[in-house]
Write a protein that binds this DNA or RNA. Structure first.
Lengths: 186, 186
DNA sequence: CTGATCATGTAATTCGTTACATGATTCC
DNA sequence: GGAATCATGTAACGAATTACATGATCAG
């Protein structure tokens, strides 16, 4: 793979019918953000790089006096996307979770505070699932109108993931409290 | 927060009794790696920075003719770690998952290939859970010998997470196939 | 008319990985 | 003797965020 993942995010969003850098960023923020983020600082330069590679082509389509650049996939771009989808390139699955890192290191704290950490962790994920549920109707509409099932399926993955962590927190809190009650540790 | 997360990884590993940069890296690789990685390129410079801040102190303890530097937390270091554990600093919970990104963008592919993507995804996580299960005995021993329960608890989180994804893949594969059988899409 | 949204971009900085360089010790 | 492991670091590079800068349009 010579193209970065961000390139495929951009290519992919264009394949879903998005047109401007702004559009792409907006869609990323309510979809792939949960498992692959991208900022303007990546998207705009990436669009130019992809155009140099002839994987996309741009067209200036001002809206009134406002500058506006629409992008579209070229045949080569569509091919590059398809090939990446089918390739078995490195399975990047990084998780960066400060809450878990905290919990990992929390042995030094007294039980009450360790339990508090778990409650905070659960609260974070409850906020997370709430945010995703708000997006859900939009994704469902997209699935029904344009036949794009996968954005909805991955959103459901996200919701199920948050639920998993929420349940794990509750469960673990219970275990820690029980263990303490039976007189094991501070 | 003025210290990066990596600083707390280092501080935390020292609090668990690790001593050299090499030790820290080895432990990271079988523990926090799954939700917070760190490389030599971060660890060694970080140790020096932390010493400048007087959060750790170093001592040269050669082993034979081999150079070796042991680090230990200072009182200030212990305090900084404890404060961070209890702070409600930004809840970083990023996920970077190339497999999910692929799946998100896979609407353009025919069903068989979309199902293949899911199978690959499941295989990745099966490898992941396998790697974690190999580490489990060590973590369990650490819990029993040193009273460090949290490394084991977070490892169990990891295993449960992998299982969650594996089950989701199976479930989703079934749904996609059923939907196709009932004649919805290609 | 004002605030939200649409729209495009750059520069500085931070963060992190990878590759390299070096060498001793330990286990088989 | 040779491979694996212990051990310490740096340099170059790449990836990504944040802040900044600018300005038009649209909805109320």
């Amino acid at each position: 793979m010579e193209l970065g993942k961000t390139a495929y995010v951009v290519l992919g969003m264009l394949s879903l019918g998005k047109r401007t850098g702004y559009d792409i960023k907006s869609l990323v923020d309510v979809s792939t953000r949960f498992f692959w983020a991208a900022s303007y600082g990546q998207i705009y330069p990436e669009l130019k790089r992809l155009e140099d590679l002839r994987l996309v082509k741009s067209r200036e389509v001002p809206q009134g006096g406002r500058r506006r650049v629409e992008y579209a996939l070229t045949a080569a771009g569509r091919k590059a996307l398809r090939e990446w989808l089918l390739s078995d390139a490195d399975p990047v699955m990084e998780l960066r979770h400060a809450g878990l890192l905290r919990f990992f290191l929390a042995d030094a704290l007294p039980v009450e505070q360790r339990v508090e950490l778990l409650r905070n962790l659960r609260a974070d994920h409850e906020r997370g699932v709430e945010a995703m549920r708000q997006i859900e109707p939009g994704a469902r509409a997209g699935a029904e109108k344009h036949g794009h099932d996968h954005p909805l399926l991955t959103l459901e993955w996200g919701i199920a993931y948050q639920d998993f962590v929420i349940n794990w927190c509750s469960e673990t809190e219970r275990r820690i409290i029980e263990q303490t009650a039976s007189g094991q540790r501070s």
